[in-house]
Design a protein around this nucleic acid. Structure first.
Length: 113
DNA sequence: AAAATGACGCATA
DNA sequence: CTATGCGCCATTT
């Protein structure tokens, strides 16, 4: 990392929202991006999580893509960690996909209203 | 400076 | 339902 862009604020925002995700719930990158105003920049949310890897500890396992798929599980120390953690919180995961994702979906702009 | 990449999303075939 | 393509936007090469 060389360069402290002002985007640091954006990253912090992402961390804050992710940390606010209730246990047993999940959200999507697009939802966070939209809540932060980065509508359409779901990719940047994922980037923020990657940047948070060592240094900032957040329940990134609660963040999945719009399809409810654990696309980011590959970035964890162990691809199984993400799925395992979700199951520990009561979220059933099958084939790298969250079961009843629609029901467990947590939208910041809606729940934090 | 330009092209490529990526923890995505949506449209279309 | 699955597969492929295009769009978004910041970071990296």
């Amino acid at each position: 990392m060389a360069k402290k862009s002002n985007k640091e604020n954006f990253f912090e925002n992402v961390y804050e929202v992710v940390r606010l995700i209730p246990k047993g719930r999940v959200t999507s990158y697009g939802a966070i991006a939209s809540y932060l105003g980065a509508k359409g920049s779901a990719r940047m949310v994922g980037w923020a999580l990657i940047a948070s890897h060592p240094g900032v500890q957040i329940p990134a396992h609660r963040v999945v893509n719009r399809n409810g798929i654990l696309t980011g599980s590959q970035h964890f120390e162990e691809p199984n960690a993400m799925q395992d953690r979700l199951e520990q919180e009561g979220v059933k995961v099958q084939d790298n996909q969250v079961v009843e994702f629609k029901k467990l979906f947590w939208d910041p702009s809606q729940e934090l209203l």
